[in-house]
Simulated scan of single mutants.
Amino acid sequence: MEFEAIAQSLAEAGRFLASQGWAPATSGNYSARLADGSVAITVSGRDKGQLTPADIMVVDLQGQPLSSGKRSSAETLLHTSLYQAYPEVGAVLHTHSVNCVSLSRWLLARGQNSLVLTNYELLKALPGITTHDGEVAIPLVANSQDMVSLSEVVLARLRVVPLPVGYLIAGHGLYSWGATLPQARMATEALEVLVSCALQEILLSQR
């Protein structure tokens, strides 16, 4: 029964994220940790706006499929590596919004390795943040098709960030998470909006 409930919740979260324009075509992938240590994750190549529980499968913490006849995303290791490194992480959501993709490319081209967010009231939607005037650093890494190498780079960057809540892959999108799926969904929505605010500030400053 646990898998069925999680699969339903992942499908609902995926449809919501797609409805916001944050998962065009078949982009994005979503997962949640199961009680036995395995991971429920979206099947590769599915339209996230039409997700159903049948589009969710199970993999182990090494990313190997435990559901027969189904294939998870090539980026599965980016999910499972987070679950291995952070026992408190219960769900991971990956979006491909226009603003995250474009701003991440812009920042990397200028030699920046993180997006620093401060003085936004919405920061308080993130776990552990109680005031608008602190700083939240969202690490930025270059894209790669080598998932082993990319996951190692990501984890190295996250280790030096207090209370990491997400990261950006340049030209690719946002990974964010939470202790539960509702918390991951809230963090993802908040970060998508905060990235959009940061991009708007850059655009306005250049007028």
Rank of each mutant, 00 (worst) to 15 (best):
residue 81 S to K: 12
residue 116 V to Y: 02
residue 74 A to N: 12
residue 112 Q to F: 05
residue 83 Y to M: 06
residue 84 Q to E: 07
residue 94 H to S: 11
residue 78 L to S: 13
residue 125 A to F: 05
residue 122 L to E: 15
residue 119 N to Q: 14
residue 101 V to Y: 01
residue 77 L to Y: 07
residue 84 Q to P: 01
residue 80 T to A: 09
residue 80 T to V: 12
residue 113 N to A: 04
residue 120 Y to I: 12
residue 100 C to M: 12
residue 129 I to K: 01
residue 106 W to P: 00
residue 73 S to T: 15
residue 127 P to K: 03
residue 108 L to H: 02
residue 114 S to A: 10
residue 103 L to N: 05
residue 116 V to P: 01
residue 126 L to Y: 07
residue 116 V to D: 13
residue 126 L to K: 02
residue 82 L to C: 02
residue 70 K to D: 11
residue 77 L to N: 10
residue 97 S to P: 11
residue 114 S to E: 11
residue 131 T to Y: 03
residue 97 S to M: 07
residue 113 N to R: 04
residue 131 T to S: 08
residue 86 Y to D: 04
residue 104 S to T: 01
residue 122 L to P: 01
residue 108 L to M: 04
residue 122 L to V: 10
residue 78 L to F: 12
residue 119 N to E: 14
residue 103 L to S: 08
residue 120 Y to R: 14
residue 128 G to D: 03
residue 133 D to V: 01
residue 83 Y to V: 09
residue 76 T to Q: 12
residue 97 S to H: 09
residue 87 P to N: 04
residue 100 C to H: 13
residue 123 L to C: 12
residue 121 E to I: 14
residue 119 N to D: 15
residue 81 S to Q: 15
residue 133 D to H: 13
residue 76 T to C: 12
residue 106 W to E: 07
residue 78 L to Q: 13
residue 97 S to Q: 13
residue 132 H to D: 08
residue 79 H to N: 14
residue 85 A to D: 08
residue 124 K to T: 15
residue 95 T to P: 07
residue 76 T to N: 08
residue 75 E to R: 00
residue 71 R to T: 12
residue 128 G to W: 02
residue 86 Y to K: 00
residue 124 K to H: 09
residue 70 K to Q: 11
residue 113 N to K: 03
residue 95 T to L: 13
residue 84 Q to Y: 02
residue 94 H to P: 13
residue 130 T to Q: 06
residue 104 S to P: 02
residue 71 R to F: 10
residue 88 E to Y: 05
residue 77 L to T: 13
residue 122 L to R: 09
residue 75 E to C: 15
residue 123 L to R: 01
residue 132 H to G: 03
residue 83 Y to I: 00
residue 117 L to K: 11
residue 105 R to V: 01
residue 78 L to C: 13
residue 110 R to H: 10
residue 80 T to S: 07
residue 110 R to M: 02
residue 73 S to R: 11
residue 78 L to Y: 03
residue 98 V to N: 09
residue 72 S to Y: 09
residue 80 T to M: 06
residue 121 E to W: 09
residue 113 N to P: 00
residue 126 L to I: 10
residue 106 W to S: 02
residue 124 K to S: 06
residue 117 L to C: 13
residue 116 V to G: 00
residue 106 W to Q: 01
residue 101 V to E: 04
residue 99 N to R: 08
residue 104 S to W: 00
residue 114 S to M: 07
residue 115 L to S: 06
residue 74 A to H: 06
residue 93 L to Y: 14
residue 127 P to L: 00
residue 82 L to F: 06
residue 114 S to T: 05
residue 131 T to V: 05
residue 126 L to D: 10
residue 109 A to T: 05
residue 115 L to A: 10
residue 88 E to P: 02
residue 125 A to Q: 15
residue 70 K to R: 15
residue 112 Q to W: 03
residue 124 K to Q: 14
residue 85 A to S: 12
residue 130 T to C: 00
residue 107 L to D: 02
residue 122 L to N: 11
residue 109 A to E: 07
residue 111 G to M: 07
residue 96 H to M: 10
residue 132 H to I: 00
residue 115 L to R: 02
residue 121 E to G: 10
residue 72 S to Q: 09
residue 90 G to H: 06
residue 71 R to K: 14
residue 75 E to H: 11
residue 80 T to G: 07
residue 124 K to R: 14
residue 132 H to P: 04
residue 95 T to Y: 14
residue 99 N to M: 14
residue 87 P to Q: 05
residue 98 V to Y: 06
residue 92 V to F: 00
residue 112 Q to C: 05
residue 109 A to M: 08
residue 85 A to M: 06
residue 106 W to M: 00
residue 86 Y to G: 03
residue 105 R to I: 03
